[in-house]
């Protein structure tokens, strides 16, 4: 188990503040944050390449905060792979084994096994300069696994791969984790995190702002930042003024379902739950507002329509509905959403 407590590090342009979380043995933890949030720096601190200003790192109960890089037993795969360009693939994978003074036969058998697992056996004698990005990444992964690390750190491992290779690598990582490898993976992509993680740690402006399973984070985003990450478009600050009424962003009064009155600070509803109509509906929908279409964003199977109705409200409708309604930017439109679709968090 890897336990990180109150890791802080100040840099000229950003800082990590009191980062704490744990990765249980065999757990797949994804650290989620925008680029420049300090995620890569956090990995370098865990690996021992950068010294933290404050905080401790414990691996299986022992404090490794000040241990040498070579003695930490934490392997890091860099975002740009850092494959040694002057060594063949075989020599790259053998590199950590030579550091351990392993015998030639042992080195060969480990290299062959890892190359087999990573499906790069046919590339062993090749020079890295002749490999594709995806192949280089497998070399880097095999090389780090040759260390037999207690924890594997991955820095944006899928971000620069094209869709087909990405999918393959994703299943390779899942398999690796299923075989017992503890993994900490950083990314800026919520869906990548959701596809792999047992646990997601969201970092924003150098701080952990939410930790939980993908489902917990998706269903209960704590801030607008996380909501945006998970694809929720309609996320507002909310004040409950009576049992059934709340004010969103201090501007728009909406009817909410009678949930228990409590300490709510935000509200959200999914863009898929918003109904658009050209005229005011005589219906059971409690919240209806007239607005102007400010933007139309086509997606693969749907269209996102952003309506300026005091607040910007996003609606996702099918392409058929969009075509039937002949929507245009600047046109007047009614938006409606049921009280029960509003979630107070």
């Amino acid at each position: 188990m890897l336990r990180i407590t109150n890791i802080s590090k100040k840099f000229s342009d950003f800082a990590l503040n009191e980062i704490s979380f744990t990765a249980e043995k065999g757990e797949y933890v994804v650290v989620l944050g925008t680029s420049g949030a300090g995620k890569s720096m956090l990995l370098e601190i865990l690996a021992g390449l950068v010294k933290q200003d404050k905080g401790e790192i414990f691996l299986d109960g022992s404090d490794i905060s000040h241990k040498k890089i070579q003695e930490r037993n934490i392997g890091l795969v860099f975002q740009d792979y850092a494959v040694f360009p002057h060594m063949s693939v075989r020599k790259n994978i053998a590199f950590p084994l030579k550091s351990k003074n392993a015998g030639r036969e042992e080195i060969n058998s480990i290299v062959e096994r890892l190359a087999g697992e990573m499906k790069i056996s046919h590339l062993l004698e090749r020079n890295p300069e002749t490999l594709s990005g995806g192949e280089c990444q497998r070399v880097a992964l095999a090389r780090t696994l040759a260390l037999d690390p207690a924890v594997l750190l991955l820095d944006e491992p899928l971000s620069s791969l094209d869709a087909s290779v990405r999918f393959e690598m994703q299943s390779m990582l899942r398999k690796l984790n299923q075989n017992g490898q503890t993994i900490i993976h950083v990314t800026h992509d919520f869906f990548e995190a959701a596809a792999l993680a047992h646990k997601i740690v969201v970092i924003h402006e150098g701080q952990v702002i939410q930790t939980g399973t993908p489902k917990e984070i998706f269903n209960n985003p704590k801030t607008k930042f996380i909501a945006n990450f998970t694809g929720i478009r309609n996320f507002f600050s909310a004040k409950r003024i009576s049992e059934n009424i709340a004010i969103l962003d201090d501007k728009l009064k909406v009817v909410v379902a009678g949930e228990k009155v409590g300490q709510y600070t935000n509200a959200y509803f999914r863009a898929e739950d918003v109904v658009l109509s050209k005229n005011k509906l005589e219906s059971s929908i409690a919240n209806e507002f007239e607005g102007t279409i400010s933007e139309i964003v086509p997606n693969v199977n749907s269209v996102e329509v952003i309506v300026d109705a005091v607040l910007k409200i996003s609606a996702i409708i099918s392409i058929q509905s969009y075509e039937k309604m002949e929507l245009k930017t600047g046109a007047k439109i009614w938006v409606g959403f049921k009280a029960s679709t509003i979630k107070m968090v």
Binding site: E44, L49, Q70, L76, S99
Partner: peptide
């Protein structure tokens, strides 16, 4: 020489001399 390569080597257990 990208410093990243040296960092990777350190992480792979190499001593600074190696």
């Amino acid at each position: 020489v990208p410093e990243r390569l040296e960092k990777a080597a350190l992480n792979l257990g190499a001593s600074p001399a190696r």
